[in-house]
């Protein structure tokens, strides 16, 4: 039987996901930063128009997903580094996942109501 009995086989996948999500967020942030600096949120109308455009909506959705996945990997690493008790760590992992999934849903809902 070829069973993987060592732990960290998820390392490469997460390492890559952390970097891809980082590039998505960095690119999005630069574009939104430029839009904001050139008065994109000067009034409610302009801000809403900016965020409800289909391209922005597509990009914002990707940004939200990236933030949550990126935060999951980063925060999980923090728990793994500093929390030694398995029970406490598992609880924190679960709470982190639930919190982030909830946040993603909430943010998407704000976006899709526009």
């Amino acid at each position: 039987m070829n069973r993987i009995i060592v732990g960290a086989h998820y390392g490469l996948k997460d390492w890559l996901a952390q970097r891809i999500s980082a590039i998505v967020m960095a690119t999005y942030s630069v574009f939104i930063g430029i839009a904001l600096a050139s008065g994109g949120a000067a009034s409610y109308e302009s801000w809403r128009a900016l965020m409800s455009g289909s391209v922005t909506r597509f990009a914002t959705f990707l940004f939200i997903v990236s933030v949550c996945y990126h935060a999951w990997i980063g925060v999980r690493d923090i728990w793994m580094d500093y929390v030694n008790s398995v029970a406490v760590r598992l609880t924190l992992h679960v709470l982190t996942i639930l919190g982030l999934v909830g946040c993603a849903g909430w943010a998407v809902q704000i976006l899709w109501r526009l």
Binding site: V67, A71, G74, V75, I78, L100, W106, I110
Partner: peptide, 23 residues
Amino acid sequence: RVSGAGLFLLLPWLIYLFQLSLT
């Protein structure tokens, strides 16, 4: 790491601000 943790902890508040700004 510290800045990432801070951003994570205040993420719900940032989404709340996002909601206020767009509703």
